[in-house]
Design a protein around this nucleic acid. Sequence first.
DNA 1: ATCCAACTTGCATTATTATTCTTTATAATG
DNA 2: CATTATAAAGAATAATAATGCAAGTTGGAT
Lengths: 156, 156
Amino acid sequence: MKSTKKPQRQHLLKRLIETNSISAQTQLVEAMASKGIQVTQATVARDLAEIGAIKVRGQNGINVYTVDELPQKQTTTVQHLKRVLGEWTIEVKYSANLVVLRTPPGSAHVVASALDRSGIQGVLGTVAGDDTILIVTENNLKRVSVVKYLKELAGL
Amino acid sequence: MKSTKKPQRQHLLKRLIETNSISAQTQLVEAMASKGIQVTQATVARDLAEIGAIKVRGQNGINVYTVDELPQKQTTTVQHLKRVLGEWTIEVKYSANLVVLRTPPGSAHVVASALDRSGIQGVLGTVAGDDTILIVTENNLKRVSVVKYLKELAGL
DNA sequence: ATCCAACTTGCATTATTATTCTTTATAATG
DNA sequence: CATTATAAAGAATAATAATGCAAGTTGGAT
């Protein structure tokens, strides 16, 4: 069954989870059936993945689906990077296109991981020792902005 | 058994999901074991719930845990409300402490649901008909701000 | 000290979600 | 058309997560 139906179905799905508090895929199967669209849980699972829906924790302990097309991953990694840098950055120095970031002993890998995961523009890669991280930037110009960005996030 | 360990365990849990890409609770059980903290999947599940961790969809299709204490619910409902109002509000009128919002036939309940879920300050409650929503505000003063807010969101 | 109530946690089980495998339908191509 | 390729979706199943229950623990209050 090639579909003219799929887009409409996913649209309804979105509407359903936006306007109701849905906490299981079987609920969606039923809700959609009542709207005249009959599908199986398997299809709902795939649709939810495609529209990027996730389950969030409700205050009352029940979890509900939401669509939230926020650049979530992005936002959160930056938040995280800020926390990490703020907590563990001792100093930021540089030379040419290299940036050297110092941390407390043993913490370099944690910070480097956060840096890698945040994908900073202009950064080619990082190498972490025990208390030092070497950050390789594309060129001197990029290095300037990278250093500025790092210091800002670190609160230096 | 041991209760002095719980806070530390949850802290480690947080760190683990922040610095790695974890996609299943069993992974966490193993990771924690390698850090010297031995727990079962059941405990991890409960801890994740307590710290509010959720699973988000990675671009590559794999889902990873994240802690993100975003005012997510808040943000999204306002976003959603804006979308809904923008799409279905025909006009906003009022009288004393009552606001009357008109929508296309059959859409009133959708809009009312969005309104209810966004919990607007000063609104006591709503009643939805087929194409009309009656919004009861606390008093005339509140009504003024509610009307302004609604029109703004609706783009009127 | 003894008891009680509120917590924690593991185990076992259930509930929920993701995926594999297969079938069918639609489109594309010669 | 016939044929092949591709996308979709269901059924069954595997994988993952949540939970009921019972067994400790702890920190008071009596």
